[in-house]
Simulated assay, not measured.
Amino acid sequence: MTETPLLVLASASPRRRDLLAQIGLVPDRTDQPDIDETPQPGELPRPYATRLAQEKAALVAGRTAEPALILAADTVVALGRRILPKAETRETARDCLAKLSGRRHTVITSVALCPSPAWTEGRATLRTVETAVAFSRMTDRQIDTLLDAGDWQGKAGGYALQGHAASFIRLVLGSPSAVIGLPLFETAQLLRGQKRGCTEHWIS
Rank of each mutant, 00 (worst) to 15 (best):
R94Y: 05
L161P: 03
T199F: 06
I143W: 07
R16F: 12
A73I: 12
V60P: 02
P85D: 04
D28K: 08
Q54L: 14
T145H: 09
P14T: 03
A21L: 11
K195H: 15
G24Y: 08
V107G: 07
T131W: 07
D144A: 14
H201K: 14
P27N: 00
L126G: 09
S136V: 13
L59I: 01
R192P: 01
R15C: 04
S167K: 14
H164W: 13
T38H: 00
L147P: 14
Y48I: 01
W119E: 11
A73N: 08
S136H: 07
E91T: 10
A132F: 02
V129Y: 08
S177Y: 00
G163A: 06
I180W: 02
R81T: 12
G62A: 13
R104P: 03
V129R: 12
E121V: 00
T109W: 06
R141L: 06
D36V: 06
T187V: 03
L84W: 01
L147D: 12
A21H: 13
A93P: 12
D34M: 04
I108A: 03
S136N: 04
T106L: 13
Q40I: 00
E43G: 12
L59W: 03
L44N: 00
T131M: 07
T145P: 00
L6R: 14
L126M: 15
Q32E: 15
E66T: 13
G42A: 13
E66Q: 14
D36H: 11
P5I: 13
A61N: 10
V60T: 09
H164P: 00
F135C: 04
G150N: 07
A156K: 10
I108L: 12
V129C: 03
S204T: 08
D36L: 07
Q142M: 13
E91A: 15
R123D: 07
E200F: 02
E3W: 01
I83M: 06
T106M: 12
A132R: 12
L20E: 06
T92V: 14
A149M: 01
P5D: 12
R63V: 02
